[in-house]
Computed example of a mutant assay.
Amino acid sequence: MPLHRDYRILDGPPPLADYLRLRVESSLSPKSGAQGAGALTGSWTFRHVIDTLENVVGMGRVVGDGAWYFLIADIATLPAHQGRGTGGAILDALLAHIAEHAPPGAYVTLTADPPGRRLYEQRGFVDIAPGRTGMHLVMPSPGVQ
């Protein structure tokens, strides 16, 4: 589905306050200002979507080394703006950027919540199990046992 005419996708990150708000309002885990600032400056590429009033309503980013490893992260669209091609347009723009700038054989990964699974499968992503295992580790706060 193409992006609805009431929206524009922009290269680059949204403002920090919008990044933090989008995470919470689209049911991603909340992050601190410092975490958000790191996400905005530490991403390999970023896209966000604005509506006709220039409100930020969607976003997505790629974390990576720019050579062979790329992680799709923070694909988020405000609930009132879902179903209009926003998430797909963001993902397509990020994948196009990877295709344009990465060498052949680049490895693109993501972790998806169940509602997003169809969006990713439509673009060729496949489940890595049982051949591989997806894992994560949340680092404890300093001084916490």
Rank of each mutant, 00 (worst) to 15 (best):
Y107K: 07
R61D: 00
T77Y: 00
I90A: 03
L95P: 00
A34V: 12
T41Y: 04
A37R: 12
V56G: 07
W44P: 06
H97I: 06
A102Q: 10
E25L: 04
V108F: 10
A80I: 00
I75K: 10
G83T: 04
G85E: 02
A99I: 11
A37Y: 05
G36Q: 04
S29A: 12
S29K: 13
S43Q: 02
G42T: 02
I75E: 13
F46D: 08
N55Q: 14
L28K: 01
G36W: 06
H101R: 14
L40H: 05
P103Y: 12
V49A: 15
L94D: 01
A99H: 10
Y69C: 15
V63C: 07
A34K: 08
F70E: 04
G105E: 02
G85L: 03
A99F: 06
K31M: 09
D92V: 05
L28A: 01
A73I: 13
H48G: 12
R47I: 05
E54N: 15
E100V: 05
G87Q: 03
F46W: 15
D51Q: 11
T86Q: 14
L71W: 14
S27Y: 08
E100M: 08
Y107V: 08
A93Q: 07
H81V: 08
Q35V: 15
S29T: 12
L91H: 05
G36T: 00
W44T: 01
D65I: 06
A106D: 10
I90N: 04
S43F: 04
H81I: 09
L53W: 10
D51R: 12
T77F: 01
L40M: 05
S43Y: 02
H101E: 15
Q82I: 00
A39K: 00
F46L: 05
G88A: 13
T77S: 07
A76E: 02
I75A: 13
I98T: 04
G64F: 05
G58M: 12
A80W: 04
L95T: 06
W68Y: 13
V49I: 09
A73C: 13
P103W: 11
A76T: 08
A106R: 04
I72P: 07
A76Y: 00
L40F: 00
G88T: 05
A93K: 09
A106I: 12
G66I: 01
P30Y: 04
Q35M: 14
E100S: 14
T52V: 14
V56H: 12
F70M: 04
R84V: 04
I98A: 02
L28Y: 03
F46P: 01
P79G: 03
G83N: 05
E25G: 03
N55G: 08
T52P: 07
V24F: 06
G33P: 04
A89R: 06
H81C: 06
L95A: 03
G36N: 00
D74C: 02
Q82W: 04
D92C: 10
R47K: 09
V63K: 07
I90R: 00
